[in-house]
Deep mutational scan, measured.
Amino acid sequence: RLRTTITPEQLEILYEKYLLDSNPTRKMLDHIAREVGLKKRVVQVWFQNTRARERK
Rank of each mutant, 00 (worst) to 15 (best):
T50I: 11
P8H: 04
P24G: 01
M28R: 06
K39A: 14
R3T: 15
L2V: 11
S22P: 05
D30E: 10
P8R: 06
Y15D: 11
I32A: 01
P24E: 00
L38G: 00
T5D: 13
M28T: 11
K17E: 10
K56Y: 15
V45G: 07
R26Y: 15
A33G: 05
P8N: 12
K39M: 04
L29K: 03
V42R: 04
D30L: 06
L38F: 01
K39C: 13
H31V: 13
E35H: 06
Q48C: 06
Y18A: 00
K40E: 15
V36E: 02
E35W: 03
L38P: 01
Y15G: 12
L20D: 05
E35F: 03
N23V: 05
E9A: 10
R55H: 10
P8F: 11
V42Y: 03
V43P: 01
K17R: 06
R1T: 10
R55K: 11
R1I: 14
A52E: 15
E12G: 11
T4R: 03
K39P: 14
K56T: 15
E35C: 05
L19D: 09
Q48N: 07
E35Q: 06
V36M: 08
I6S: 02
Q48T: 12
E54H: 02
P8W: 07
A33L: 02
H31L: 09
V45S: 05
L19H: 06
I13V: 10
L20G: 09
R1N: 12
Y15S: 13
L2M: 12
T4G: 10
L11Q: 12
E12K: 14
K56W: 05
A52Y: 01
Y18R: 02
R34M: 10
N49V: 09
T7L: 07
L11S: 10
Y15M: 10
E35T: 06
Y18C: 01
R53W: 05
K17V: 03
V43R: 00
I6K: 01
Y18Q: 01
V36T: 11
M28H: 06
V43D: 01
K40Q: 09
T7P: 08
L20E: 09
H31G: 11
Q10F: 00
H31Y: 07
K27T: 08
Y15I: 07
E9Y: 06
P8I: 12
R26G: 08
N49W: 04
R51N: 14
G37F: 03
V42K: 06
A52M: 06
V42A: 07
K40T: 14
K17P: 05
L14V: 00
L38M: 08
D21Q: 05
S22E: 14
P8V: 14
A52G: 09
R41K: 15
M28E: 11
L11V: 13
A52S: 07
R55M: 13
K56A: 07
V45F: 02
R55Q: 10
Y15W: 12
L2C: 06
D30A: 09
V36A: 09
R26I: 15
I13N: 08
R26K: 13
E9H: 06
R51L: 14
R41L: 13
L38W: 01
R26T: 15
R55F: 07
R53Q: 13
Q10L: 03
Q48W: 03
L11H: 11
T25P: 08
N49I: 13
K27M: 07
I13W: 06
A52P: 02
T4N: 04
R26L: 14
S22D: 12
L38K: 06
E12L: 11
T50P: 02
T50Q: 13
T5P: 11
L29A: 07
H31A: 12
A52Q: 11
E9T: 09
T5M: 07
R51C: 06
R26S: 13
A33V: 02
E12A: 12
E54C: 01
R34P: 03
V36D: 06
K27A: 14
Q44E: 15
L14G: 01
E54M: 10
K17A: 06
K40G: 13
I13A: 12
R55P: 12
P8L: 14
K56N: 05
Q48E: 15
L38V: 08
L29D: 02
W46S: 00
P24M: 02
I32W: 07
N23F: 15
L14I: 01
E54N: 10
N23W: 07
T25A: 05
L29T: 07
R53G: 12
L14Q: 00
T4I: 09
R55L: 13
Y15T: 12
P8C: 03
R34H: 08
T7Y: 04
I6V: 06
E35V: 05
E12Q: 12
T7G: 08
L2E: 15
S22L: 03
P24V: 01
L29V: 11
L2P: 07
T5A: 05
L11D: 13
Y15K: 13
K27W: 06
G37N: 13
R53L: 12
L38Y: 01
E9C: 04
E35N: 05
T4Y: 09
K27L: 11
P24Q: 00
R3F: 11
Q44D: 15
E9D: 12
W46K: 00
L19W: 07
I32S: 00
R26E: 14
R1V: 10
A33P: 03
K40W: 12
I13C: 05
K40F: 14
R41W: 09
W46F: 06
V36H: 04
T4Q: 09
T50L: 08
Q44A: 11
T25V: 03
T5Y: 06
P24K: 00
V42Q: 11
G37E: 04
L20H: 05
Q10C: 01
A52D: 15
R3Y: 12
V36Q: 02
K27F: 06
V36I: 05
T4E: 13
L19M: 09
R51E: 08
G37Q: 10
N49M: 12
T4M: 11
K27Q: 13
E9R: 11
D21C: 05
Y18V: 01
R1C: 14
I32G: 00
L19S: 11
V45R: 05
L14Y: 01
E54P: 03
V45W: 04
N49A: 12
K40I: 13
L29E: 14
I6R: 00
V36W: 03
K17L: 03
R34T: 11
W46Q: 00
M28Q: 10
I32C: 03
I6E: 04
M28Y: 04
V45C: 05
L11Y: 08
D30K: 13
K27Y: 08
M28F: 03
K27R: 04
E12P: 02
T5F: 05
Q10T: 03
W46H: 01
K27S: 13
T50N: 09
A52H: 08
L20T: 07
R26H: 11
I13D: 03
L20Q: 07
V45E: 15
R53F: 12
E9W: 06
R51Q: 15
N49K: 04
K27E: 13
L29I: 11
I6A: 06
Y15H: 13
A33W: 02
R1S: 15
Q48Y: 08
R55N: 15
Q48K: 11
Y18W: 05
M28D: 14
L19C: 10
R41A: 15
E12N: 10
V36C: 07
L20R: 08
L14P: 02
E12M: 10
V43W: 01
S22G: 10
T25G: 05
R41I: 11
I6W: 04
Y15C: 10
R53I: 08
K40P: 14
F47L: 02
E9Q: 08
I32P: 03
D21W: 03
I32V: 07
R1G: 15
T4S: 10
I32L: 08
N49H: 04
Q10I: 10
Y15E: 15
D30G: 10
L38H: 00
G37K: 08
